[in-house]
Each structure stands twice: as C-alpha cells, then as structure tokens.
Design a protein around this nucleic acid. Structure first.
Lengths: 182, 182
DNA sequence: GGGACCATGTAAATAGTTACATGATTAA
DNA sequence: TTAATCATGTAACTATTTACATGGTCCC
C-alpha cells in the first residue's frame, strides 16, 4: 500500500468543481459505486491535510447556511493530480468472499450456495440497471464540459463486468442444480 | 468490516489437507490470485490464534526438517467453517485505480492513458493464460476428491471477468486513439 | 414535532502491508 | 559457494471502518 488514494480521488473530483466533503462522499457512493469507496473517516481528515499542504483551498459556503465548507483545487493541487495521473497504475485490489465460499463449498448443501449466488446475481442486476439508467441520463442532458465520453467509457467497464458476473452466476446456479439432483 | 476473513480462508484450505503457513500463503497467491490475497503478517498471527482457540491443531512436521509446522482442522474448526459458509456473503470489495484515472483523464495526454490501458490489458492477458493452463491441468489429472468441478466453476469466474476486462480495454484504447487524432 | 436527509467531524478499533530478522535446503 | 526458494515470524506503520456526537434544514 505504497500510498493512499483518497487524496487523489478528492483532487480529481475537485478538478471538475468545488465541493463539500459531504458532496464528495455522495459522488463516490453513487458514481464510483462499482469500482471505488471511501468513508467519512478518510475524507474529512484528508480534506484537512490537503488544505494544510496547500493542494486545495477551503472556504465557507456563500449561502453560509451552516458550517458548510466548499473545497477548491489550487494550482499546486492540479499539478499533483496530473503527476499522479501519469504514474503507472497499481494493481487493482479485489476480494470476493463469494468465490471463497464457492471454492470451499464441496460439503455444503447446494441450496445454500444457490441462495448466495442468487443474492449476488440480484444485487448486480440492480446495479446494472442503475448504471444503464445513468448512461441514458448522460445521453439526454447536454455535455458542456465535454467529458461525458470519458465517463461513459468508465460506465462501460461496469456494464461489461456486471454482465460477466450475471453470466457466471447463472452458469454456477445451473451447475449446482445439477449437483443437487444427483 | 464486521469480521476478518483470513480466519476462514485458512480454515477452508485446511479442510482439504493439513498445511504449513508457507503453503497456505502459496496456495492463496497462486490459486486465489484473481479474487483474494493475504500477507504473512495476517497468516502467521491468525494461525497462532486459531490454535489457541482450538479450531486448528498444529504439530511439527514429521520429516522434522526444521521449524516446519503442519496445521490441521479440528472438529470445532470444521463446524465454524460450515457456519461461515452458510452465512450471507458480504459485498465484495473492489478498487480500480485505473478507472479513477480514466474518469479524471480529460486533460491528460491520450498517449499516457493508452499506456495505462495496455499495461492493464497485457497483465490480464497473462493472467488469463495462467488460468486456462490451470484449467487444462485439472482436466488432465484425476479427480480423487471429486472437487474439481467446484474449482473449475471458480476458475470460470476468473475467465469471464478477465475477458470482460480485455474486451473493455480494447474498446477504451480505440476510443482514446480516436480522441487523440482530433 | 418528527423523520429524512444535509453536514462536519473524531476516537477507537480493526485490518492489512511492509520491511525486517533469521536460518535451512536445494540445485547450479 | 552462491542464489533461489523454503520457512517462520514480528514490529511498525498505514489504511480503513465503525460508531458516535452534534446540529441544521426541509417538508409533511
């Protein structure tokens, strides 16, 4: 874990527009759902440290409703972001408890494993629907910043991978049903 | 992170045969490479704690070469494993730095992003080859324990997902090459 | 006035990696 | 004899989650 990425996710999001910590969290939860996650416990301390090192600038929100703070990227923040973008990508990290269970399931009742698989399948079917809806929305609204295509490319990854999940889980269920009968 | 899974991976592997810590690590690195990982810093302390709580039994290796220790599952270990197998699966965790970079790459030179994508593609192509080779090996050797089919089912997941990665990265490279030319 | 959601934050615990120390065995 | 690999382990560090505290706003 050479370096935490929280820093760069924040920098990246702020490169498009000034945001509050809460908004950053929401965007990650919704838009990055299928390939990233961060918790408040990482975001807020990181925002503080980025402000201290001058990579972002933080000012109370204009409407000044409550303690709400907007954070904006500084020039040095932008150059740190660009440097990171150019660096080689570290290997993705992936952990599927489901596959562990599948691997060890020899003595497990097939019905239980089938249940795990259908839960998996259902939840990814829902995620796929959300992705497709987001895709349609992007197509409808205009593209003033001209970055829809990059975003669509990222969504396309989610679609392809989720379809692979669904394809696999159908296959695995079929296999287990066969095993069950014998 | 309700509970660490290291415990169950170990229990699962020991349910098939007695193993040393080193062997456990190797199996995870090789066979589970595409969906799991553990470090020695997790494995050895966990082996100690599992021994203390009686879920596994540890005895010096027969050949008694050096400090080598074999660990075997106990009856209570087996029942803890079976309980865990039946419990609902927690959501997988997945983190793709590549997609983060893709998402923020609007102002990045296309060539750099293409390089990231080809690195990604190359490494997963190699992984896919390894998976396919392992699959062929399983087909050749016999299946005394009768668990090859479950293992093949898990490998099939890796294949489908890796193919989706390769498919996507080709598409993404094509898109970026188009963007580059304009 | 209550529930949903907006909003910021921290402390403690847990999880996980990395770097190191140590030494045996095997094969070139 | 040297390099690779087998083998066990720990300490320090880093990353991440979880649970909590606090209070505002919006709408029914």
């Amino acid at each position: 874990m050479k370096s935490a990425k929280t820093k760069y996710v924040i920098l990246g999001l702020l490169s498009e527009s000034a945001l509050s910590g809460y908004e950053i969290k929401r965007i990650i939860d919704i838009r990055f759902h299928f390939f990233w996650n961060e918790s408040y416990g990482q975001i807020y301390p990181e925002l503080k440290s980025l402000t201290k090192s001058g990579l972002i600038q933080s000012m109370p929100c204009e409407g000044a409703v409550q303690g709400k703070v907007k954070h904006a990227l500084t020039e040095s923040g932008r150059s740190v972001l660009m440097e990171w973008l150019a660096e080689p990508v570290e290997k993705e990290s992936v952990r599927f408890e489901l596959l562990l269970k599948m691997y060890f399931s020899k003595e497990l009742e097939a019905g239980i494993m089938i249940r795990h698989l259908t839960d998996f399948s259902d939840s990814h079917r829902r995620q796929l629907d959300i992705l497709e809806q987001f895709q349609r929305e992007l197509a409808i609204i205009g593209d003033p910043a001209g970055n829809h295509k990059d975003i669509l490319q990222v969504i396309s990854f989610g679609e392809k991978v989720y379809r692979a999940y669904l394809d696999w889980s159908a296959e695995a269920v079929a296999y287990l049903k066969g095993r069950e009968k014998t």
